[in-house]
């Protein structure tokens, strides 16, 4: 870890001003940043501690029916918030399916959005990687593994975004509140993360110095409370990144699907949402055929990056069907003992 300058911001304005200097990084819980600094993957010269910024850790149900979660709220606090668990159950379930209790107790909501890919060629700090070192190439391309992308990748980067939390957020049309030199703005989560394209080094829409201050879930998100699930297929029962995951949410009206939401994790460099797949379900009865059709559409554009991740396309279809089926069956009264596990879904 390089010897960095440490400063503690006392206000958002203070933090933003400090971050104007190049080579700056915001430190919240540090569960990802400190890990990356230890690995020499990222070497900020200035670390701006934002953990004490006032007013950024609240979870607030607002009069208009929306929910605002401060960027410094801890993952575990959000998951355990009774209103969140009741109203946005798949958000709570996704949070509880991520990492370990220790990491969730520390990690913040903003940090979760900002976490970097787990691509081995990115984290090893030496392989060619266009994210780490623009123009150096993508070492993963010639040896894709099961964690690599099958959607939205480019010849410059085939990494995936590791977050569970962002998947239901994307499905529920969450927005990200951002503050910077130029003032405040709000961006939809589905547009917050950038696909790699020609510039994998640009991972989000954040401009230098901009800070994520909050997340909001719109009032409409609450209508899915009764029929929403997050499903995460893993290589071990807990404490593992998703091989493939999906958030599925439905509104049901007289035996017909009103609205459907479907987003995937583990497939791309951002939570992957396919509006056409969601649209295909509208007005249909929640049947295996309808779900299979939606899954087919959702994976229509999928393209494996190698032999090792080819299975994820079919797996993702099945995960979608299972998540939708489970959502149709109704949100369970209590989050299962094994959150989001296939073995916890029943």
């Amino acid at each position: 870890m390089i010897l960095f300058d440490y400063s503690r911001a006392s206000s958002v304005a203070d933090a933003i001003a400090a971050a104007r200097q190049p080579g700056s990084a915001f430190l919240a819980a540090g569960t990802n940043l400190v890990d990356l600094m230890k690995g020499g993957v990222t070497n900020p010269e200035r670390v701006i501690d934002i953990t004490r910024l006032p007013g950024l850790s609240g979870i607030e149900a607002r009069a208009d029916g929306s929910l605002r979660i401060g960027a410094l709220a801890r993952n575990s606090d959000v998951a355990d918030d009774p209103h969140v668990a009741r109203t946005y159950p798949m958000v709570a379930e996704a949070l509880l399916a991520g990492a370990s209790a220790q990491l969730r107790n520390a990690a913040t909501v903003g940090g979760n959005l900002m976490q970097r890919t787990r691509c081995q060629y990115f984290t090893d700090a030496v392989s060619p990687c266009n994210k780490r070192q623009p123009g150096s190439g993508c070492a993963a391309l010639g040896h894709a593994t099961r964690i690599h992308a099958v959607q939205g990748w480019s010849e410059h980067c085939i990494a995936t975004h590791p977050s569970d939390f962002c998947v239901p957020l994307a499905a529920l049309d969450a927005s990200v509140e951002i503050e910077g030199q130029g003032g405040k703005r709000s961006v939809k989560l589905t547009e917050f993360h950038l696909l790699p394209g020609d510039h994998p080094e640009r991972e989000t829409v954040l401009e230098p110095g901009e800070l994520v201050t909050a997340l909001t879930l719109p009032a409409e998100a609450a209508q899915f409370a009764g029929n929403a699930r997050y499903l995460k297929v893993r290589d071990r029962t807990s404490y593992a990144f998703a091989v493939v995951s999906a958030a599925a949410a439905l509104t049901l009206d007289g035996g017909r699907i009103g609205q459907a939401r479907l987003a995937f994790g583990g497939l791309a460099l951002k939570p992957w949402r396919v509006p056409e797949a969601e649209g295909s379900l509208a007005g249909k009865a929640p049947s295996p055929e309808a779900f299979a059709e939606a899954a087919r559409i959702a994976l229509d554009s999928a393209k494996p990056t190698g032999e090792a991740n080819a299975f994820k396309v079919e797996l993702a279809r099945r995960v979608a069907v299972r998540a939708l089926t489970s959502a149709a069956a109704g949100t369970p009264a209590r989050i299962p003992a094994l959150p989001a596990s296939p073995f916890g879904l029943v």
């Binding site: 297929v233 893993r234 029962t237 797996l315 099945r318 995960v319 296939p342 073995f343």
Partner: peptide, 8 residues
């Protein structure tokens, strides 16, 4: 899991 292959 008959569809997803996860083993316990």
């Amino acid at each position: 899991d008959p569809d997803l292959g996860q083993v316990r």
